[in-house]
Design a protein around this nucleic acid. Sequence first.
DNA 1: ATGGGGGGTTGACGCAGCGTCAAGGTCAAG
DNA 2: CTTGACCTTGACGCTGCGTCAACCCCCCAT
Lengths: 259, 259
Amino acid sequence: MLTISQLAAYAGVTVRAVRHYHQIGLLPEPERDTSGYRRYNAGAVVSLIRVRILANAGVPLSQIRQLLEADASTFATAVEEIDRQLGDEIARLEASRKQIAQLAAGDRLALAPEVITYLDRLRDIGVSERVVAGERDSWILMSARWPDRVREWMPSKTAQLDDPQLVRLYRILSEVFESDTGDDARLVEAADILASLAEQAYRSGEIDLGEVAQDDLPFDLLDALAVEADPRVERLLELMRERGWDGLARLERLAEPPT
Amino acid sequence: MLTISQLAAYAGVTVRAVRHYHQIGLLPEPERDTSGYRRYNAGAVVSLIRVRILANAGVPLSQIRQLLEADASTFATAVEEIDRQLGDEIARLEASRKQIAQLAAGDRLALAPEVITYLDRLRDIGVSERVVAGERDSWILMSARWPDRVREWMPSKTAQLDDPQLVRLYRILSEVFESDTGDDARLVEAADILASLAEQAYRSGEIDLGEVAQDDLPFDLLDALAVEADPRVERLLELMRERGWDGLARLERLAEPPT
DNA sequence: ATGGGGGGTTGACGCAGCGTCAAGGTCAAG
DNA sequence: CTTGACCTTGACGCTGCGTCAACCCCCCAT
């Protein structure tokens, strides 16, 4: 006959856990000896181990009893379900692991390697750290919203950086936001380039991002984030509105541009 | 400016979670509007997402704040540690998944395929379901004790079933335990065979299981389990003692056998 | 027999990370 | 002016035990 601590040791659990299982009726209370000690037979070890196997798989204790009492087919389907959930959980942890790895990989944030590459390209073409940081924060939001889509978008985003107009735009913005002055002339120049790029994109139909466009909250958020980072962005938005475009993260036609 | 529910929606968490993070000081309380509502700026979304990334990786909320405040190198080492733990957890879940799968695979218990094969072999050579069930329970205990070693042992265990003496032993035991009578003559016969097998094993040095032998508690437990399953096992133990052997799951020399 | 150390017993509170009422105040629309 | 969808704080509930507390019990050495 076993004491509670022996039983617990065999099954690799704590004494407290065993008592808990008794309390909630998951394990039957065994006989007591003359001094009130619980006395277990060997079969109790097997029962306890079975309970632990299910518990380790994440099955709530409240379900384990019914599960062990269930008939074979019920049990089998339940096990399938448990296995599915285990698979999901493993996938979740692996995804989380990737995120964490990237988080350490430099930008300390949840960004796909494609995005990191994109940000590095920005630095290469002379974009200031401040502006890169702004882009980074934007992509964090985008990644949170569309974790999978983001990776698809990046190749074309990166390709666009080959356009000298866009490079020029980024450089101007870098200059402006790096300086302490409110250099309006440069902002106007930037707005002109941006409007021109938007016009091109609009004509070629590129401006449509598909389903994403229906849910436009994040884009407002991105613009708000930019304004927060530097209030001069507000002026840029104003200049864009004058040119018939609304927004910044996603440009939306307000009216035909002045000819 | 965002309301709390908008903030929560962007980060994919519940409103309650956000408030909880405020309570424990993980996120700073934002400004309130005239009616006392919390009003968030876009940056709060980024902060919240960062918190969630760490939380999803299993980092306790109490540690997240310090982590986000830490310098880059501290952070990097912490992330390594987190990654390690994630790896461990994934491995644990995968192991659990295997156990669960086997659990459904027929014998409803945590047994390696090698053991299942062994049990099937027992059935093939005519061992009764009752005795197989006893063996199964024993292997559950063994598997709990030495999850890895068990798989190593099985090949030789299975090979031993080629020995006609052992087959005969199992068949006699099956008969005895399947009947309602206390057929002592058959038990004596079984004891003789078992003693003879033990003698062989002892001479060839096979009886030593290595380090395992030092921890002999489980073997007592296995014997106790057998006695529980059928009290006639007690008689078998007695017969074995008469023949100079102690135990059943592991036979131990008591004295030289009567010549 | 006596004391000490290592068991056992019940009972109760503590913990994380929120979920879920309860009991209100607020806002926008019809 | 009502309705319904938000917002507020406060408080208790949940899981699966860990961790006291306060006491009893057994065995061994002195």
